[in-house]
């Protein structure tokens, strides 16, 4: 299905994220404030760099709490980054005022995990679709907006649109709701879709349909899609590239097939080893990671994965590995942050 792209060159790159970091303060009690204990920070995102071309789908995978959602929220402008740069078509968006950011918001749209929560229960489908146009002043007249809303709905796979426009969210199924949410993103004609686990709340039977819709959108109008998922098989199937996150940092990224078939980072290997195979006789030995991911307010020294790494060596406690192309790499676009890879 997916054709592995080469790493995009800077020229055709739609989204370019460089050294992005976002942190949240840890709440201090009154006694701690009085004792002048220094404020501690949770480094939810700690130096993430990634790029995305038009028509490309990149999957961001990793376990819960590794900073996937914060990364996407930072890109969408909902969380202010503490450092780093985000460029959309070469234009820097970090540090822009809300007013300057607004026209850019139109170009990147978020799709949320829970379609039961992401639509206003009091809004008819048509109202949900028209609202983004009102905010951004699109569509001259009421009938123009109605036409655009119907078009977006049909593009999102809810046809005929007339059968859905007057419904309330509670009258729709989960898959239909998610399609409405996608249509509400499409009415603005975005270049970039940020999808935060778009199918994890849906029934398995409708997941494929929604994923196929996203796949079609990146092919036809050529949108870039950054999709968060913790389902590696979904990522392998639909995404062009996979970026694996661990504790706020990307530890391995490369073409989807390469990452899945020949993982280099021990964390990626562990993740892949627990993906059940279709053939029960072929069950490999799942490599269960011991323990919890470390507290992101208190990241281990050296390699942040070493506390749970099955192959950690002495150098891993001192030197922090950076993303690099392994010397013996078979795929030139495959990057790994591990001393031993």
């Amino acid at each position: 299905m997916s054709t592995p792209h080469a790493a995009p060159s800077a020229a055709e790159s739609l989204l370019e994220v460089e050294g992005l970091a976002a942190r949240y303060p840890v709440r201090r009690g009154l006694t701690q404030v009085l004792a002048r204990q220094t404020r501690r920070w949770v480094h939810a995102v700690d130096g993430v760099s990634l790029s995305l071309a038009r028509g490309e789908m990149v999957a961001l995978v990793g376990e819960s709490g590794c900073g996937k959602t914060t990364t996407v929220q930072t890109i969408s402008g909902m969380v202010t980054p503490s450092s780093g740069s985000i460029q959309l078509d070469g234009a820097e968006i970090v540090g822009l005022s809300e007013r300057r950011l607004r026209p850019l918001r139109r170009r990147m749209q978020m799709i949320y995990q829970d379609p039961y929560e992401s639509l206003d229960p009091r809004f008819r489908v048509s109202q949900t679709l028209v609202e983004p146009m009102l905010i951004h002043g699109i569509g001259g007249s009421r009938s123009d907006r109605a036409r655009l809303a119907a078009e977006a709905l049909e593009r999102a796979g809810l046809a005929p649109a007339g059968a859905f426009l007057d419904r309330y969210p509670h009258e729709l199924s989960g898959g239909q709701r998610q399609r409405v949410a996608i249509a509400a993103a499409l009415v603005l004609g975005p270049d970039l879709l940020l999808a935060d686990e778009p199918v994890s709340m849906l029934d398995v039977s409708v997941r494929a349909g929604v994923l196929a819709l996203l796949d079609a959108l990146r092919r036809d109008p050529g949108m870039g899609i950054l999709m968060i998922t913790h389902d590696l098989s979904t990522a392998a199937h639909f995404a062009d590239r996979i970026a694996v996150m661990y504790l706020g940092r990307i530890v391995e990224q490369g073409p989807a097939q390469t990452v899945v078939r020949a993982p280099r980072h021990p964390y990626t290997r562990a993740l892949l080893s627990v993906v059940p195979d279709r053939d029960p006789r072929k069950a490999g030995t799942p490599q269960i990671l011991t323990g919890e991911a470390p507290d992101p307010a208190n990241v281990p020294s050296g390699c942040r994965f070493r506390t749970r790494c099955p192959v950690a060596e002495a150098q891993c406690t001192t030197a922090d590995p950076h993303l690099r192309f392994p010397s013996d790499a078979t795929d030139p676009a495959h990057e790994v942050a591990c001393h031993l890879a």
Partner: peptide, 12 residues
Amino acid sequence: RVYIKRTRGLGA
């Protein structure tokens, strides 16, 4: 609620 966040994300 998420739909409020979504609306804010739209630029409302």
